[in-house]
Write a protein that binds this DNA or RNA. Structure first.
Lengths: 225, 225
DNA sequence: CTTTTTGCTTAACAATTTGATAATATTTAA
DNA sequence: TTAAATATTATCAAATTGTTAAGCAAAAAG
């Protein structure tokens, strides 16, 4: 299962529905929060700032539509995807929902597969601008943001360190010769001493606190795990 | 009737359906093109570059799904909204459609009102992404009025400062190289000294009283939080 | 039309970070 | 065991950025 790193909040007064949806979305790798009514939904939304909110229309207290209106007032939720969930296949309700500022609606009974598909599809549209990230186990190398993420922690490397690590991690397992490293990271023009690479390798190992670079004596270095 | 200035292409082999949809969308102010099958749809799409394409799944020759796949290969249509239209409420087809890269689907018989609502809603989401007001936490950047609002307070930045901040904030987290910044804010013609960017960055930091621009030494600057 | 203000750029210098090296210690392979 | 290769550490020069003030040009005000 891939880690989606997206937060979804579901508000419905029927616990069964909540759990079915939660189960399916968590199986897809989403992080799920739940709320039993509109007021709770607003509180949870402010707390977790989810990327997507599923609101049942018929709930005790505030309806999904009212909840949506209240959320949309807050600038923090103008970009949040909001979907309505309703037992009514009533046309008027559908339209009201969309005009209110929801992004889509789903009618109950909803098949989990369709739900998940629809949500993936909505995220696909939004997340076109995601940065190119190199994943290697728990390690993420974000070229665009120029940071390393290890177990959720941001690690900042200096330029040479970053590029050296990015090079090695670009092909896990491959041994890079010292010459290859020099050419790729320093360029063919620059000439640096023998120990320069070692020192940078050391700094990476130190900052990452993780044994992911293996020395192959007489040959070079490789990234693993 | 408002002028929507959006182009929609509809592909369906049933002339009645085409006309019903055309009528309703034109009444909403959209410009509508039609096609009788998948091949025609591709030709029309290339000719008019519509903002949204409605594809019937069951068509003689290419199916809507095949047509969608062919369109998505072309970079010109990666951002185009594609909706499937189908008489089948068959789940499998639905899912195939969404996984194919369609943004939504509609099942026939479809009420014109729901169709129009759904389309408006999809456009609303897209146009939000191009909205002149950029939200980043408590910070609002109004590109139209050249104004920054932070926690309700208006902050006035000079043009260059504003454009620099707007650029950085347009993709929070992304590191902009000094060259990128120069090209985007100053243009490729103008050549300015080394310290110019720094001075503007400093003024932004000073006026905003907010630590939102991070220096990545040797690389560039990025906006965060 | 002149004065004042504002915005942009530059220069000069300070502060900071980075990267390379040298010196020394440790490890590894034959 | 021993020579070669690599690790470690501290140090320093170079590269990079931060800061400030000053000079102009254009816009705004008088």
């Amino acid at each position: 299962m891939e880690l989606k790193n997206k937060k979804i909040l579901i508000a419905d007064d029927e616990p069964d529905i909540l759990e079915i949806i939660r189960f399916n979305l968590e199986a897809e790798g989403y992080t799920v929060f739940t709320a039993k009514n509109g007021d709770e939904a607003i509180i949870e939304a402010k707390k977790h700032l989810p990327d997507l909110i599923i609101l049942d229309i018929m709930m005790p207290g505030k309806t999904g539509i009212e909840t949506c209106n209240l959320l949309r007032i807050n600038p923090a939720f103008t970009d949040t995807i909001i979907i309505f969930l309703t037992a009514l296949s009533d046309e008027t309700t559908e339209i009201k929902g969309l005009e209110t500022g929801a992004d889509d609606y789903l009618t109950k009974p909803i098949s989990p597969k369709v739900l998940v598909s629809k949500i993936n599809s909505l995220f696909r549209r939004i997340s076109k601008e995601e940065s190119p990230v190199l994943h290697a186990g728990e390690l993420q190398i974000d070229r665009e943001r120029y940071i390393i993420i290890y177990k959720g922690e941001d690690i900042i490397l200096a330029r040479k360190e970053f590029e050296l690590l990015a090079l090695l991690a670009s092909r896990p397992g491959k041994v890079f010769l010292r010459n290859e490293i020099l050419n790729q990271v320093w360029g063919t023009e620059v000439i640096v001493g023998d120990r320069t690479i070692d020192v940078h390798i050391r700094k990476i190992r130190q900052k990452l606190q993780l044994d992911c670079i293996t020395t192959v004596k007489g040959v070079g270095y490789k990234f693993d795990l």
